[in-house]
Design a protein around this nucleic acid. Structure first.
Length: 809
RNA sequence: GCCGAUGUGGCGAAAUAGGCAGACGCAAGGGACUUAAAAUCCCUCGGUGGCAACACCGUGCCGGUUCGAGUCCGGCCAUCGGCACCA
C-alpha cells in the first residue's frame, strides 16, 4: 500500500464528511479530551508535538470506538514574548508573524490525521477571545481578587518585564535565562492566595500524577503554627512573630525582624542608627539570589531595642537580619538557637545566648545542639514533659488566653503577578482617572493597537502610544484620563481556554454556563509536566473563582491528567537549536506516512517517560504494518476453507481475544507500547495460521477485522483503507471496539512448572479443571517427577494454579 | 537539607495480586529462497562452565521476611526532576 497517498485520501474524506464530528445534541455521553494548546512559533511541528497530539488523538479515537461522544478541540496560545522578541529582531509585526505561523501549524496538525474539531478553534490573540480574558480580569477586580500594589517584584532585565514568582527558575528568567533582579514597582496581582487552602485540599479529589500533586502541595506550602506577640520593653508597641515551634518559646534568647520590617525605623536607638541604616542599605543592594543563599553567613545588626518574651517575661534583644523575609509570615521570627539551625548560626556569630528547652524523646537519639527534631519540653515551667506535638499548640493557647497569641496557618504561595511591560498581550482594561483613581473599562474589548513601537526600554510599549494611552475619558466622571499601559501575562489567557472551547463563538458571554457545566470538567488532559506550578495551578484558581461568582458549578477543571514524557535528542539532551539535535518528523512522515510515524512513537517509548530519539526501529514498524496488510488481505483471499475448529484455530482465537483484552486496557492507560506489542503477537499468530493449507475462513476473517479495529486508533488511515479493501461498509474509525470472549482465553490443558525447593526441575501438562488437591496428587504420581525425586521424602507441596507446583523436600 | 521519581541484556523496553525475569521489537550472528541483491521466511541471541543433558550466577549495593522477591520490609549508593534561610 502507498501509505502516504492513502493518508491524503482518507484525511480528505473524513474532514469533508465530518465523520467523527462531536455531536452537540448528545452532551450526556460527552468525553472531553484536551491537549495543552501550543504556542505558534515559527518552527515546524517537532517530534514532541507529534508525541503529545498524535498519541492523545489515538486515545480520543479509542474513546470514540468505545461509544463516547468525543470532544477534542485545538487552538493556539498566541500571545507572548517569543513573537515580540522575533519582531524586535526582524521587524515583522507580532500579529503578522503569529497569524502566519498559525496557518502553517494548522496544516501540519491536520496532517497528523487527528480528529481535532476545528469548528471550535481558539486563537487567544484575537479580540473575540481576549475580550473575555479582559472580562475575567474585570470580574476578579469586582470581587476583590485583582488588585494593584507596590511591591518588590521580579524583573527580567533582558525581557524588560516583571515576572511571576512561578516564572523565576533558580533566580533566572524562565524564558531567556537572564538573572532576575528585584524592583519596587506598582503591579497588578490576582489574589490566588485566597484559594490556597482549597487549591491544596482539592488535589485529593483529582486523578493526577502524584508527582504533580506533590509539586503543587509543595508550592502552596501550607504550614500551621502560631503568631506570638512580643511587646517592646519600653512599652512603645508590639509586633508578632510566626512560628511552627511554639514549644521552643522558652528557648527564645532574641528576636529578628526583616530589614524591611516597618518597625525598624521606629525602634532603632540613637547609638545603633548608623549601623542599622548601613545594614539596610547593603541589603537593598544585594540581589535576591545572593541574599537567599543558604550557604551565606547569618548577618545582622542589633537595633538597640528590647522586647518581652510573653511566656516568661524575659527581656530579649531585637535584631534585624536578612535571613528573615519580609514577605513570609509576619516578617519577624523568634530566635531559638538551641533548636533551629539558622538561629544557632546567627547566635554563635553574634554571641547571643543559647538555652536548651527540648530533649530528644528517646535517649539513643543524637541530642547535640542545635537539636531541631521533635522531642520533650524541658526548662519550660508548667510545660515540662510535654511533647512537641502538644506543646506547639498548648503554648499558643496559653498566650491566646492573655491576648498574646493565636493559632494561624501560613502559605508559601504568593499572589499571582499578572501585569507585563510588554506589547504582545491582552491590554489591562483599566483607566486611571485623576479624580476617581483606577476605574475598570468595561467597554470590551480594549483593543490592542497595531501601530506600536515595541522596542523594549523598560517601559511598556503601550505607554508610548499616544492615542491608546490618552484618547480616553473616565467612565465614571468623564474627565480626561489615561489607560493602563501594561498587558496581561499570557498565563491569564491560558487559564480559561478550556471553557471557551465549548462555546467559542458566543458573542454575548465568555461561555454559556449551562453548556460549560455539562461539558466540563475535562475528562482527560494531556500535556507537559513543566506546567505543574504555573498553568495547572492558575487554571484551577480561575475555575474556583468563576465558580464562586456563579458562572460555573464545578470545582476542578481537569478531572484526569496525563503528562507525556519528553522526547530527547539522539544525544540524550533536550532538543534545542543550540544543541543542534532537533529531529524533524517531516522526513519520516513523507517517507513512511503519518500512521507509521505515530505507531513508532507509540511503540518506541513508555508514554509517560519519553527518552532519547532513535530512528532505528521506524523501518521495522513500516515492515510490521506491511506484514499486517499481507495477512489481512490473505484472510480475505482465496484458499481452501473449512469449518474445522482444531488446535490451530483455538490458538489463533486465543491470541485474538487476548490481544483485544490487553489492548483495550492499554489504551485506557496510555500504555501504547504494550498495545503495539500485543498487536504484533496477533500478526505473528496470523502468520503462523496462514501456513495451514486449509483454513477456517470465518475465524480468519473475523480475526483480521479485529486486528484492524484494535489497530485503528494508532493507524487510522491504514486501517480505513484495508477496511474498505476487504469489502466493509462504513468507516472503521467510528466502528465499535471489539469485545473479548473470556472462554476463548482459557485452554483445556496448561503446562505447569514443577519446582523442587523453588528450583525449576521439569514441566507437566495439567487439565485446567483440576482442583489444587488433584493437581498435587497428579504431580506426585507423575513418572518423570517420581524419577527426579528418587525416593526422597516430600515435606510439602505448594500449588499455584495455572502457574507452578513447588515440592518442598 | 526536604519532597518526588527512577535504576532490569549490546539497545528501546515487558512483567494485574509475591509465582517460570527479559514479553514485544531493534541490533547482531547463522540458514533457506535467489545468478546476485532487495523483499520474504526459519533458527540462535543475559553471563560463566560443559560435547551434551545440565549446573551455577544474574533486575544498582548490603541485609531481612517468605517454599518462592524485579515486586514486600530495613539500611545504603547513583542518576534525574521539583522546592529550598518559608521560621
Amino acid at each position: 500500500m502507498d501509505k502516504v497517498a492513502v493518508e491524503k485520501k482518507w484525511n480528505k474524506f473524513w474532514q469533508e464528511n465530518k465523520v467523527y464530528k462531536f455531536d452537540e445534541k448528545d452532551v450526556d455521553n460527552k468525553y472531553y479530551v484536551l491537549e495543552m494548546f501550543s504556542y505558534p512559533s515559527g518552527a515546524k511541528l517537532h517530534v514532541g508535538h507529534w508525541y503529545n497530539y498524535g498519541l492523545s488523538d489515538s486515545f480520543a479515537r479509542y474513546q470514540i470506538m468505545k461509544g463516547k461522544n468525543v470532544f477534542q478541540p485545538m487552538g493556539f496560545d498566541a500571545f507572548g514574548l517569543p513573537a515580540e522578541n522575533y519582531a524586535i529582531k526582524t521587524g515583522i509585526h507580532p500579529q503578522d508573524s503569529t497569524l502566519h505561523n498559525i496557518e502553517v501549524m494548522e496544516q501540519q496538525l491536520r496532517n497528523i490525521g487527528a480528529i481535532f474539531d476545528w469548528d471550535h478553534e481558539i486563537k487567544t490573540c484575537l479580540p473575540d477571545y481576549y475580550k473575555w480574558t479582559q472580562w475575567i480580569f474585570c470580574e476578579l477586580y469586582k470581587h476583590g481578587l485583582a488588585y494593584r500594589k507596590k511591591a518588590p517584584v521580579n524583573w527580567c532585565p533582558s525581557c524588560n518585564t516583571v515576572l511571576a514568582n512561578e516564572q523565576v527558575v533558580d533566580g533566572h528568567c524562565e524564558r531567556c535565562d537572564s538573572q532576575v533582579i528585584k524592583k519596587d514597582l506598582t503591579q497588578w496581582f490576582f489574589k490566588i492566595t485566597a484559594y490556597a487552602d482549597e487549591l491544596l485540599s482539592g488535589l485529593d479529589k483529582i486523578d493526577w500524577p502524584e508527582k504533580t500533586k506533590a509539586m503543587q502541595r509543595n508550592w502552596i506550602g501550607k504550614s500551621t503554627g502560631g503568631e506570638i506577640t512580643f511587646d517592646l520593653a519600653d512599652g512603645s508597641g508590639s509586633f508578632n512573630v510566626f512560628t511552627t515551634r511554639a514549644d521552643t518559646l522558652f528557648g527564645c534568647t532574641y528576636v529578628v525582624l526583616a530589614p524591611e520590617h516597618p518597625l525598624v525605623g521606629k525602634i532603632t536607638t540613637e547609638e545603633q542608627l548608623a549601623a542599622v541604616q548601613n545594614y539596610c542599605d547593603e541589603v537593598a543592594k544585594t540581589d535576591e539570589i545572593e541574599r537567599l543563599s543558604t550557604a551565606k553567613d547569618k548577618t545582622g545588626v542589633f537595633t538597640g531595642a528590647y522586647a518581652i518574651n510573653p511566656i516568661n517575661g524575659c527581656k530579649v534583644e531585637v535584631w534585624i537580619g536578612d535571613y528573615v523575609l519580609a514577605s513570609y509570615g509576619t516578617g519577624a521570627v523568634m530566635g531559638v538557637p538551641s533548636h533551629d539551625a539558622r538561629d544557632y548560626k546567627f547566635a554563635v556569630k553574634h554571641g547571643l545566648g543559647i538555652n536548651r528547652v527540648i530533649k530528644a524523646a528517646s535517649p539513643d537519639v543524637d541530642d547535640s545542639l542545635p537539636y531541631c527534631e521533635y522531642g520533650v519540653m524541658v526548662n519550660s515551667g508548667e510545660f515540662d514533659g510535654m511533647s512537641t506535638e502538644q506543646g506547639r499548640v498548648a503554648v499558643v493557647e496559653k498566650l491566646a488566653a492573655i491576648g498574646k497569641g493565636k493559632l494561624t496557618t501560613n502559605y508559601r504561595l504568593r499572589d499571582w503577578l499578572v501585569s507585563r511591560q510588554r506589547y504582545w498581550g491582552a491590554p489591562i482594561p483599566v483607566i486611571h482617572c485623576p479624580h476617581c483613581g483606577e476605574v475598570l473599562d468595561e467597554n470590551l474589548p480594549v483593543m490592542l493597537p497595531y501601530d506600536v513601537e515595541f522596542k523594549p526600554d523598560g517601559t511598556s510599549p503601550l505607554a508610548k502610544h499616544e492615542k491608546f494611552i490618552h484618547d480616553v475619558v473616565c467612565p465614571k466622571c468623564g474627565a480626561k484620563a489615561t489607560r493602563d499601559p501594561d498587558t496581561l501575562d499570557t498565563f491569564v489567557c491560558s487559564s480559561w481556554y478550556y471553557l471557551r472551547y465549548v462555546d467559542p463563538k458566543n458573542a454575548e458571554k465568555p461561555f454559556d454556563t449551562e453548556l460549560v457545566d455539562k461539558m466540563l470538567p475535562v475528562d482527560k488532559y494531556v500535556g507537559g509536566a513543566e506546567h505543574a506550578c504555573m498553568h495547572l495551578l492558575y487554571a484551577r484558581f480561575i475555575t474556583k473563582a468563576l465558580r464562586d461568582m456563579g458562572y460555573l458549578h464545578f470545582d476542578e477543571p481537569f478531572k484526569s491528567l496525563v503528562h507525556q514524557g519528553v522526547i530527547l535528542g539522539p544525544d540524550g539532551n533536550r532538543m534545542s537549536k543550540s544543541h543542534g539535535n532537533v529531529v524533524s518528523p517531516d522526513e519520516f512522515v513523507s517517507a513512511y506516512g503519518a500512521d507509521v510515524f505515530r505507531c513508532y512513537l507509540a511503540f518506541g517509548f513508555k508514554y509517560t517517560e519519553g527518552g532519547p530519539w532513535n530512528d532505528d526501529g521506524i523501518k521495522a514498524i513500516n515492515k510490521w504494518l506491511d506484514r499486517a496488510e499481507r495477512y489481512v488481505l490473505a484472510a480475505y483471499g482465496d484458499y481452501a476453507s473449512c469449518d474445522e475448529y482444531g488446535v490451530d484455530e483455538k490458538e489463533l482465537n486465543r491470541v485474538r481475544h487476548n490481544t483485544i483484552k490487553s489492548v483495550d486496557n492499554d489504551y485506557n492507560e496510555f500504555s501504547f507500547n504494550t498495545a503495539v506489542a500485543r498487536m504484533m503477537e496477533l500478526v505473528n499468530a496470523m502468520s503462523k495460521y496462514d501456513n495451514k493449507t486449509v483454513k477456517n475462513a470465518k475465524l480468519y476473517r473475523e480475526t483480521a477485522d479485529d486486528l484492524l479495529k484494535v489497530l485503528c486508533p494508532l493507524a487510522p488511515h491504514f486501517t480505513e483503507e484495508l477496511w474498505q479493501q476487504t469489502g466493509h461498509n462504513g468507516s472503521i474509525v467510528v466502528s465499535e471496539f471489539p469485545t473479548y470472549d473470556e472462554k476463548a482465553l482459557k485452554t483445556s490443558e496448561i503446562e505447569m512448572l514443577v519446582q523442587f525447593n523453588s528450583r525449576p526441575k521439569t514441566r507437566i501438562m495439567v487439565d485446567t479443571s483440576l482442583t489444587v488437591a488433584q493437581i498435587e496428587k497428579l504431580v506426585l504420581s507423575d513418572v518423570k517427577v517420581q524419577e527426579l525425586l528418587g525416593g526422597a521424602s516430600v515435606k510439602k507441596v505448594i500449588v499455584i494454579p495455572n502457574r507452578l507446583i513447588n515440592i518442598i523436600l
